[in-house]
Simulated scan of single mutants.
Amino acid sequence: MRISVFPKGDLAALSDARTMTVFEWITKASTLPADGLELYSGMFWRTDDDHLDAIGEALDAEGFEMPMLCTSPDFTHPDASVRESEFDRQLEMMRITRRLGGAGASTRVLSGQKHPGVSREQGVAWVVDAYERLLPVARELDITLGMENHYKDGSWQHVEFAQKGDVFREIVDAIEDRVHFGVQFDPSNAITAGMDSADFLDEVIDRVVTMQASDRFLAPGTTLDDLRLADGTIGYSPALQHGVIGKGMNDYPRIFRALADVGYDGWVSIEDGVNGMDEMHESVLFLREAREVYFGGSTAVRVATQEAARAAAGLESLARPDIEDDALARGREIAR
């Protein structure tokens, strides 16, 4: 299992205000004992090859990989021209994923917003159609589309169309490809949708290809019942807070045991830092300890279910050995 980090606390500066560059974030993250950095589409203020290669060189200089690129396409927008624009942007991000992450890297995808007036049937049809049209490109690039159980992108007006577990599973189950499509599991987002995160994992575990790790805490005097909305979901609230992984509401021992039992030894990306880099560092140390306890200290990359699907399709394995052996094979230096 390899550990990457996602700059939840600096995302607005990197993507919205643009007061921090991706190069500054890479330098800032270099103090963390992590193996990779998950990047976000909004960080790419330019997408020309020279700029992308400069980002790749900066990552390599700090000993980081780029295993996942986080994107937020809105495939449920009622305007067909907007949906097509979102599709084209997604194709661009997939090509960036391959350029920076190489074969096997993952592009996180979403369904879209829960726009008023868009029925469940129509929304599901639009999302499945978009994914099916993206998959030939994913196969050509040999990257993976990872659909995340999500709450809401920071730039969105409405919550995730597939926030509820049954809608999410309907879309995932409609995609037969298990080589280049799967689930990016986020346990905290299951909680915000009103589900037990470990129970939800049990329902999708055979499709998990990547994972984001974060944790949630209830403010003093607040209960889950206080946060439940009329439709049975839980919306983001100041009472539901980010914090150090392993100290909140997720049952990480159960989650990691379940993943290890099905042969998941892939990437886990930390979504933290809202309260500063000290907490991000503590979260990395928590995952490093979990790696020892639940994954035998492995720093390999191997997702057994996806590897089985590749073998059945006659494709080469993407499994990689422990970091030291992998670095020797690739002629890379390890900065940490």
Rank of each mutant, 00 (worst) to 15 (best):
F75K: 05
V268T: 14
P253H: 03
D251G: 11
H180I: 07
I245G: 06
T233D: 01
R291P: 01
S81H: 13
A290R: 06
R108T: 10
H115P: 03
L91D: 09
T233E: 04
E24D: 12
P33V: 09
F23T: 06
D196F: 07
G314C: 02
E57C: 12
K164Y: 01
D53H: 13
T192M: 14
T107Y: 02
D215E: 08
T223H: 02
V209E: 01
Q241L: 09
V118R: 01
F161R: 01
D199F: 12
R207S: 09
L32V: 11
P321S: 00
M195A: 15
M211V: 15
R108W: 03
D325W: 00
A193M: 08
P220G: 07
K8H: 13
R120K: 12
E57T: 14
G194E: 04
R83Q: 08
G263S: 12
Q163N: 11
R207I: 09
D326E: 12
P238M: 02
P220M: 03
L32F: 07
D251L: 06
E279S: 13
P7H: 05
Y151P: 03
E307D: 02
D74W: 07
F168V: 07
G63R: 07
D16N: 14
A312S: 07
V274T: 13
S72Y: 15
C70I: 14
P321V: 01
G123W: 00
A327C: 02
D166F: 09
H115V: 08
D215N: 06
N275Y: 12
G36K: 02
L134N: 03
L110V: 12
E86N: 06
G248P: 03
R320C: 03
Y131T: 09
I55H: 01
E57M: 12
R207W: 04
A34F: 07
G221E: 03
A125I: 04
D261S: 15
A162P: 03
G246W: 04
H180A: 08
I255K: 05
L134Y: 03
L328Q: 10
V301G: 02
R320Y: 00
D60A: 15
R228V: 12
T223F: 00
R332W: 08
A190K: 05
A312T: 06
Y236L: 13
S111M: 04
V127E: 02
D251N: 14
Y40G: 09
L37W: 07
M94P: 08
G36P: 08
M277A: 13
K114I: 06
A312P: 00
H77K: 06
A239D: 10
S119L: 00
T27A: 14
R254T: 15
V109E: 01
F23A: 05
E57R: 15
R169V: 13
M1N: 06
S72W: 13
F44I: 11
T71D: 11
F6C: 13
H158I: 05
R139C: 00
L52W: 06
Q163H: 11
R336K: 11
A219V: 00
R2M: 05
F200T: 10
G123M: 01
S81F: 11
G102F: 01
P78N: 07
T192I: 15
A103S: 11
E289R: 13
